[in-house]
């Protein structure tokens, strides 16, 4: 059973804070996998970068 009985709806600041934090992590993942030009990362992610339409090379 999910124990979340203290609040019927989450506070707006809680949502905003958690949402922004999650989005920043997501953005970091996209930048590292899709855009950082370090050789090792570029070579490993090469095919995906092309297939996903990211600028590559």
């Amino acid at each position: 059973m999910n124990v979340q009985s203290t609040t019927a709806t989450p506070s707006r600041t809680g949502l905003l804070g958690a949402g922004i934090f999650a989005a920043l992590i997501g953005l970091g993942m996209i930048v590292v996998t899709g855009h950082v030009q370090a050789d090792t990362l570029h070579d490993a992610a090469h095919d995906v970068r092309h297939a996903t339409g990211f600028p590559c090379h």
């Binding site: 953005l27 993942m29 996209i30 995906v48």
Partner: peptide, 11 residues
């Protein structure tokens, strides 16, 4: 990459 997208989409 898609997990990264999802972390922006869900919020």
């Amino acid at each position: 990459i898609y997990s990264g997208y999802a972390l922006i989409l869900v919020p």
